[in-house]
Structures are given as C-alpha cells and as structure tokens.
Design a protein around this nucleic acid. Structure first.
Lengths: 249, 249
DNA sequence: CGTTCGCTTGACGTCTCTCAATGCGGGTGG
DNA sequence: CCACCCGCATTGAGAGACGTCAAGCGAACG
C-alpha cells in the first residue's frame, strides 16, 4: 500500500466517467476529484477489503478486478448484496455511516485505491456539485439493491439468474469489459448462489437450463451471451434502474 | 392540497428529530429546514402517493400514517421494498434521481407534506451539513434495504417474519408509536407476503406459529409482542443496521 | 342486508434444498 | 514431468418448505 505521487483519478478514470454522465461536473470539480489523495492496494483473489463492523476512516475505489459486498446471518448464511466492477466507489456510504454494516471481498485479483474520508468530505463541501454527485452515486447503488429485492423476492430461479446475468453484462459493458457478447464472470457457482438466495446445486442446474435453452454458454469464467433478447425476456430485465447513459449492450 | 401558511416542520417534527440525532445540525440549519415550504396532502388508505416511472419535482414527507414502497415485475408480481413510519422522508432520493423507480402507496389514511426539489436542493447547498444529513438519511434507507436482502435471501419464513416484526416494532418505538409491546400494524397479510417474498397463505400459517410459540399475539391490526427476546432470537435481529440512537424497545 | 375484502383451513403439487458421490482441472511438490 | 490434492462443477435420489387451488367464514361497509 503506497501513497501515490501523481493524481489517482486520471481523467479517463471509469469512476469519473460514471459520475460525469450522471451529474454535470465542471472542469474545476473534476480536477478537484482527480487530485484526491489515495493509497493503492492490491488484494488477491477472495481477499478481504472490509469486514462487517469495522470502523472506517477511508473509502475504496475499485480500480481493477471484481468485488462483492455481503452480509452474514447469525448462523453464518451469506447474502451477497451487490457485485462491483472497475470504477465503482464501493463503500462511499461509510463516509457518512462510519461503520461498515457489511463486508467486502474480492472475486479475483484486484487493485483498489483508498481515499480518506476527510478528503472526500472536503471536496464534497468545497464543491456542492461533487457532494451531490456522491449522493447520487449511492442512490443508484440503492436503486440496484431494490431491484435485487424484487429479483430475489418475486422471480423464480431461472428468471432470477437470467436477470442477474443481464445486470452484470450491462454493467461490464458500461466500463468496456463486455465485447461481442463475451465477458469474464469471476464468480463461482457458490457465489452466484449467495447472490440469488439459491443453493449452489440449484444454480448449477439452472445454469444448465439457460445453456440448454441457448441463452448463454460458458467455458469456465468465460461467459458468452448467445441470445440477449431471450435472456432479457427470461429475466424481465429493464435497464433503467442502473441509470446508465446508453441502452443495453 | 394546500400551501401551508406556517413552517411545516415544527421543531418537534419526528423527521427533524431523526436527522438531528444522526447528524449534528446547528440552530440555523434546523431553522432553515423548519422553514421549508410544503404542500400538505391527505391520502386515504391504500391510495397512491407516487407511481413507478413518474417524473418527480417534489419529495414527500410522511407526517402521519403508514406507507410502503414497492416494485412490480413485468408479470405483475409485487415486491414491497420498504415500509415507512411517520417522520420518514419517503422519496428523498428522487431529488437526485428525478424519476421514481418504484411506486409508493399508503397502508392506512395518511398525511404527507410535499416539498419541492428546488427548495431541498437550496437548503442542501446553502448548508453543507444539511446536504450531508439528507445523504445520510438515504444511506440508512439503503442499509435497511441490504438487511432486507439478507432477510429474504437467507432466512426461512419463520425467521423472516420475526425479523420484519422486530424491525417495524423498533422503528415505531423510535417515533413513539410502540408502547408496552403494543403497536398498530396497518398491514394485511397479503402485504406482509409481498414484503417477505412469501404467499399470503404461508404468512398466515407462519403468523399462527409465532402466536402458538408465544412470541406475539394480535387482534386485527393491533399487535402485541409477548416475548421480545425470543422474537429477536427467532429473527436473528440486530438493530444496528437501523442507525437509531437507543437500543431495542 | 347483501357484498366485499381479508383471514383461515385443507389437500395437494412442486420448486428448491439436502445429502452424498463422482468427475474434472489446475496447482504443487516430489 | 508426473502424481497427488483440493476446490469447483456436476449428478442422482429423496425430502421438505413453501406454493397453489379452492372453499368457508367473519367483520366492515355501502
């Protein structure tokens, strides 16, 4: 973990791109964001980034790799509450809430940038638009959470998994990690199970059905969407809750 | 719906109380909030407040009564994503997101105050602490959503319902609507089903089991918690995600 | 006083889980 | 370079939680 010499958030940073198309930011505001101090850290696959209950003094931006946030029940059942792709400011909420109410772990080797809460609060108060943009970013996160509630609460395994795959593909597409229907899904079937409230065994069978129906195919973590329209149909997927600029992949 | 003559948010307003104990606000900031303009509206039981997809120019504060936010799947299945008690600024997120990504309905006769987004943005930018307090309020909302995901995704019907009842009781207690284990639960079994991802029939049977086990009792909408410790135990309930000042009821 | 809505109950069906075993592939050490 | 693991994917059989369908009942309401 090293203090960076140069500004972390280059202008082409996916996080800044995301903020910019959701909120209109001036050059000065973008510059202030780009100048944020940060410590870089590399975390290996299946490593911890944040532990539930931990008091936080900084937030982390996922620069490269994949991550998941999750909560545990008293008897150890795990629920993944969100997946994250490069460019996501994963725990921006701890700026205000201070204590992590859930854990964050990596799904593959990852690179993250830690930014002190004080610095974030400083930009947020110095530039109103930035504060509002941070707020908006966490609101989109909450919107995704609501869609997950709908997904887990009301759709059967087949639709649930189709919907999740649509979401991941769409979010990866937004950061250029989805090309011609292909993307890396750095996730085990057990993790898909924890994200959907199903069991690994049932995920396996549901995945097979999706393949048999010609909606997707995969070799290991390499996924290919064979029939996007059918997958969207199966999952009842409607992008709008992601608040992305472009339509679906 | 009438324009108010006097400040809406009296100093004893439960929303301001909630903001104040979560964020430290100065007298000037509280005064600015109390001076917010608003239109009052009365909505009768099972009425709409906001419809999914609607473009919003104002947000509503639930002054009196109960409300639920919910989303619908393409084939009409409903998932309630949150319940609201008096003092909740129900759709503060539309200040930034503009379009409602879900509907809001009342559960009993309710009184709400509509506050224009422009006015909210004005106080938020004029007083940094207020902007941050709004942000924090929506973050707590998101934290509750995450706990719901855990609840629906990982707990069985019995624990799930016990947990939900614990949450409602705790939130009602925070606004003085829970006394000696008794509170009004203005919710039909069908609505409990839509909130937990179960069916009305199964909610009915699970409720009976909770009664048989001596955890709760109810006559109509009048609920009584017979054994708080056992209910907490059954639901695996841990208050911290609600970010309330006091411990459990 | 009929109608409606919500609660309740029974019988039955099924989606998803559990348990357990097998196979596969990639890393690791000899 | 091969043998041995270990984690993950896969399969099968059986069980159980929860859903579906359908009917009856009571209280609220027009």
């Amino acid at each position: 973990m090293n203090v960076r010499r140069q500004p972390v958030l280059g202008a082409d940073n996916p996080f800044l791109r995301k903020l910019s198309y959701r909120s209109r930011l001036s050059a000065a505001e973008l510059a202030a964001l780009a100048a944020l101090p940060s410590d870089e850290e590399r975390v290996r696959s299946r490593g911890y980034i944040v532990r539930q209950g931990e008091a936080m003094k900084r937030s982390c931006l996922l620069v490269d790799g994949f991550a998941a946030r999750y909560k545990l029940t008293a008897d150890g059942e795990r629920q993944i509450v969100s997946f994250h792709v490069p460019g996501d400011f994963i725990d921006l909420h701890t700026v205000m809430l201070k204590v992590a109410d859930h854990s964050i772990g990596t799904l593959g080797d990852a690179r993250i940038d830690w930014v002190p809460h004080t610095a974030l609060l400083d930009v947020a108060t110095a530039h109103d638009a930035v504060g509002l943009a941070f707020w908006k970013d966490t609101l989109v996160d909450a919107s995704i959470g609501r869609e997950w509630l709908l997904n887990i609460g009301q759709r059967d395994a087949y639709a649930r998994l189709a919907h999740l795959i649509c979401e991941i593909a769409t979010r990866l597409a937004a950061v250029g990690l989805y090309r011609e229907g292909r993307f890396q899904l750095m996730v085990t079937q057990t993790e898909l199970a924890d994200a959907t409230g199903l069991t690994p065994v049932h995920i396996n069978r549901t995945l097979q059905k999706l393949r048999a129906d010609g909606l997707i195919s995969n070799r290991g973590t390499e996924f290919h969407i064979e029939d996007w329209r059918a997958l969207v149909e199966a999952g009842g997927f409607d992008v709008s809750y992601l608040y992305l600029p472009e339509p679906a992949p």
